Amino acid sequence: MPKISEKGQSMPSSPVRKLVPYAEAAAARGMHIYQLNIGQPDIKTPEQAINAVKNADMEVLSYSHSAGNQSYRDKLTTYYNKNNMNLKSEDIIVSTGGSEALLFAMGSICDYGDEVIIPEPFYANYNGFAMASGITVKPISTHIENNFSLPAISEFEKLITDKTKAILICNPGNPTGYLYTQEEMDQLSALVKKHDLFLVSDEVYREFAYDGRQHLSVMSMPGLEEHAIMIDSVSKRYSMCGARIGCLVSKNKEVIATAMKFAQARLSPPSFAQIAAEAALDTPQEYFDEVISEYIERRDILIDGLKKIEGVEVANPGGAFYCVAQLPVDDTDVFAQWLLEEFELDGETIMVAPAAGFYSTPGMGKNQIRIAYVLEKESLKKSIRILDQALKAYKG
């Protein structure tokens, strides 16, 4: 029998999606499942985007430019420059989701065996992208006791070797919801300039900043023109996860020229989805005001509810729509499966994401879960009650 590659065998399973078979089996038994495991917003996609696809007048669904439609990149430039980024359209390569942009970035700046430092817990697919690219992740741990804030810069410097090529952050963070401060961003800026590294910033949750705080983009920071690479996506901003449109942004011309070779190899990003994404840029500010207000209310309901559950510790997110909760159980992988296979409360249960898959350090996050507060408020209240009762019933 032909043998599967070692790389393929080493690819990690998604901590968000690996429980799907158990959820499908529970649903087949008639169970109602509150899905807190995946960042799929229930917010409506802007009607401008939907209508643009419905009304598209074309006879041939053709390739776009490998860097993406010029009209879309021009419009993206205007959007970014309202956020003080001072970009040109040639600084942008449109990708098939933020995922492809991350793969382009890793392929452009790292060789096999090179290292990227990432504060953990981090978006689980960073592990998979690094594995696929032959890159070693060097994790630097953040802690729930400190709300997952940035570790001391001295801890970063301990990890830097001649193989280190970049520091990768997610801001605001997935899975923690942590929003980096100006001081923390300044510290990272000084560090990458000192050691001549890239600073890759995954900013797909940029719009979701709470409590009067502002998101600071790596692209708006002076002196980082040759160091900064931004990853972005329409998935969360416009509740368009299925569009699979993202982009890689950098003022470093060599990075863009190299990433273009990867873009050309996959031909072009999806044409219909670019039409939707371009139209979405006309979404009025009122849409975001309402969405952010809704997420703040959901966050407050969730965090307040979790804090009332005995033995649960939770960090308070300043952005995105996730939080990490620490539970009084030994292994949340087992607990999450048990919730779907054996527990119910009035015919309902919850699906959560075990947090160990968001770490690279073995053994970290075993008693933590990520919760996405993407459900409406009454569903969140029911989910909190289910978790409370489940923890009281759980014997593991």
Rank of each mutant, 00 (worst) to 15 (best):
I4M: 06
S14W: 02
V20H: 09
A25F: 05
N37T: 02
G39N: 11
G39V: 02
V53F: 12
V60P: 05
V60K: 13
Q70A: 04
N81W: 01
N86Q: 12
L87Q: 07
K88Y: 08
D91T: 03
V94T: 15
S95R: 09
G97Q: 09
L102V: 12
L103P: 00
I109C: 12
C110T: 13
D111I: 06
I117G: 11
I117H: 11
P121A: 03
Y123R: 04
N125M: 13
Y126D: 00
G128R: 07
F129V: 04
S133R: 09
G134W: 06
I135D: 01
T142H: 06
F148G: 03
P151D: 07
I160H: 10
T161E: 11
A166L: 11
I167W: 08
I169W: 09
N171R: 07
N174R: 02
Y180L: 14
E183I: 06
V192R: 03
K193D: 05
K194F: 05
V200E: 02
V204W: 12
R206A: 14
E207R: 13
A209H: 14
H215S: 14
V218R: 09
M221R: 12
E225K: 13
E225T: 14
E226P: 03
I229R: 01
I229N: 02
S233H: 07
S235V: 00
K236T: 14
K236R: 10
R237S: 13
A243H: 08
C247G: 12
L248I: 14
E254A: 11
A257L: 00
K261E: 11
L267V: 13
S268M: 05
A273S: 15
A279T: 05
A280S: 15
L281V: 06
P284S: 13
F288L: 07
E290C: 08
V291I: 15
E294V: 03
I301F: 06
G305N: 01
K307A: 02
E310A: 02
G318Q: 05
G319K: 06
Y322D: 03
D331N: 15
F335P: 00
W338S: 02
F343L: 00
E344Y: 04
G347M: 10
A353S: 15
P354I: 11
F358S: 15
K366H: 06
L375V: 14
L380H: 01
K381C: 02
S383V: 01
I384A: 00
A390D: 01
A390N: 00
